[in-house]
Write a protein that binds this DNA or RNA. Structure first.
Lengths: 254, 254
DNA sequence: CGACACTTTGAAGACGATCAACGCCGGTGG
DNA sequence: CCACCGGCGTTGATCGTCTTCAAAGTGTCG
């Protein structure tokens, strides 16, 4: 019984916002649990899209191989987030355009793609929830494109660390990086070397990183170069300070 | 009567796929026509989101100012495409996060945002059409992020020119650029100078550009560096040759 | 005609990628 | 128990690419 195992994750799913407990129950009965050991693939790029997934614990990396060998990390999906929503509704060749692999032992709830489509077609609440989620996602990557073409590596890292702090609900005054630096660098589309060098520079700008321990020690400075567009991530009182600045490029140029 | 004025554009709208003529008629009666002279803004970044738009003729540029002055072109929307879909369903602050300005005289059909939400809630066909459109869009920008971090300017331009050829239904053996080089450069997130220099280099790789005239003169070479992920853009028999390669970075590295 | 936007070209500079080397750790196997 | 290996992270040196600044040519429009 899925609900019994991961009630928190399931109850917080935005996908089911606006549905009552009974309705959720009916839908969730279709779910099947899958365990993914670290390094195990949930699916590969090019596979037919058969399922929709909710990550219950652990984390999955979405990545794509470019034909000349190097790989791009599209996203790192943590507990409570979903996989394949976008692909399922794309109405294209119906094949995954990314691979999904567990970066740490993970538990995933799996539904058939048809189930999701049916739910969207029959419940306008669900359809609108999905629309909202995909729209937010689209906005996020759009902002990231913008970052890539206008910000230096330091700015991107600073911005990313702050979003990560929000998304993982970590303490801005000190937290451990939730996954490896190599993976973060890949997620940001930069080389591990560049990422490493960048972390050192951030120390002069209100962010201290020692090993995998991060501390925002000068909120005022940080407020100066938080990117205003990033506030698209859900607002949260605890982290409010991280969200109320505008992105001033110059500050990190030095 | 909107339909009378722009029957082609309206009838081809994917948004209404699966609806009969009568249903379309009812929905379209709500539309209001707006003329946008070149340089005129349809809305500004930060404005409350009030409407959903269908471009009937001309082209609109979507752009965002970064706080330190430079501007990013998010997208160039041509006839038959829509504006604000994503923003409307984002369920965030309900404000535009881009500005829309006419790059050439444009005619736009305008619907209230509430109208679109209502249509999506009441018709699962429409909801699924929107889901599909946004998903495709999300995939496209995802691929563009990938391009930005793995491809050189030359590769990006080559790929973009081919997608443009498809989207605008142009003749691969020779066509005029549908808008200015400065705008294209901005759309690609690069400087006009870089873009200009890049076009010269493409001549050695199967693409000739003279002034604003583009010709793909060596399909075989081009096939070698078309990016396979880009085939997400709708397939089209005329342009099939442009879609059947895989993206081999090395070819354009020289 | 003059103002202005667009495009191209040149030269210099900044930034990130790449290659190489090293220290560190955890695991494996002799 | 120690030797060895592989992955990770850091640092240094070098290289290529894109940006930036500058200048000049072209075209359009008032």
């Amino acid at each position: 019984m899925p609900q019994a195992l991961f009630p928190d994750v399931i109850n917080k799913l935005k996908l089911f916002d606006g549905l009552n407990t009974e309705q959720k129950g009916v839908l969730l009965r279709e779910g099947r649990i899958r365990w993914c050991g670290q390094g195990q693939y949930l699916f590969h790029c090019g596979d037919p899209i058969s399922h929709f997934y909710v990550v219950c614990s652990g984390a999955m990396q979405l990545l794509r191989q470019t034909p000349d060998g190097d790989q791009i990390t599209t996203d790192v999906v943590i507990a409570g987030k979903t996989i394949s929503k976008t692909e399922i509704f794309r109405n294209a060749q119906n094949r995954h355009n990314v691979s999904a692999v567990a970066v740490e032992d993970a538990v995933v709830l799996e539904f058939s793609a048809a189930w999701l489509k049916k739910a969207a077609a029959e419940s306008s609440a669900i359809a609108l929830n999905i629309l909202s989620a995909i729209s937010q996602y689209a906005h996020m990557i759009q902002v990231e494109i913008e970052h890539k073409s206008t910000m230096t590596a330091a700015q991107q890292v600073a911005c990313f660390l702050q979003r990560m702090c929000l998304m993982h609900d970590l303490d801005p005054n000190g937290f451990e990086l939730p996954y490896s630096k190599t993976l973060i660098a890949s997620r940001l589309g930069m080389e591990p070397e560049t990422f490493s060098r960048t972390l050192v520079k951030l120390r002069e700008h209100g962010i201290e990183v020692k090993d995998s321990f991060v501390r925002f020690y000068d909120m005022e400075q940080i407020g100066n170069y938080v990117c205003s567009h990033c506030s698209a991530v859900e607002d949260c009182p605890t982290h409010r300070t991280l969200l109320t600045g505008t992105c001033v490029k110059k500050d990190l140029k030095a």
